[in-house]
Amino acid sequence: MSDVGYGEEPTQDDLDWAEYGKTFTPATQIELLNATSEKLVGRTALVGIVLAAGGLVAVSSVLANSLSRGWAIAAVTMAGGAILVALVTQVRWPRKVRPGDIHDLKRWHADYVGWRRTALAFASFLLVPAFLAAAVAAGVALTAPPAPPAVNVTATTVPGADGGAPTQTLTGSVTIPAQGSDDVAEITVVANGETVVRMRQAASAGTIAASFEAKGVQTDVGITVTATSAAWKCVLNLARPRGEVCRALAAE
């Protein structure tokens, strides 16, 4: 019979790999599973960093755009699913094992390793589309046109103390897309010719967002909110809040 394979002198590479092969013991398989599970839980946090494009976009602006919101929800759902699966693999049911009996030890090991291996493979696979969806969401939010500027103000009447005349409390907000990171909006609220709010708000994550409150304002007076940034001027008259509130300033 000529069907014989003769052994050769092993190369150093053969010996090195044979040595590595010996590390595939039942104990290292369990260590590998536990390490994989812990890494998965740690890495899902990176999906959030991708979602915010490393801080370039605010999560609020990712959620403001309906397209990027869909991708963000998909990313968070998949990352959450991966965390859930990884956490489930960390659950240990109590069981008695007889370590002196190789049969029993093998059965215990097969039970421990079996489904965890499949579950962790699935969870680590899930992180890949989660990252992609997060990147798409951040990309859509970065390239989408910014939300139009908006000014809102609400007046609440407060009864006067000791039978005095009632007053009103004004609360409001201003949101203006920023023209660069050093853009600043000047916001004033004028009631009956008197300035009751004057503030400056700097841009943050591509948006100038401010909220204000003025108490003790006389009732039945004209109220005007003015907000001016580098690119926009908004004027809201509370008596007639309809019409174009904000207009783009001509580029100089």
């Binding site: 019979m1 069907d3 014989v4 394979g5 003769y6 052994g7």
Partner: peptide, 9 residues
């Protein structure tokens, strides 16, 4: 296995 027998020279 191919070959089916393994030997030392």
């Amino acid at each position: 296995l191919t070959p089916s027998t393994f030997a030392c020279r």
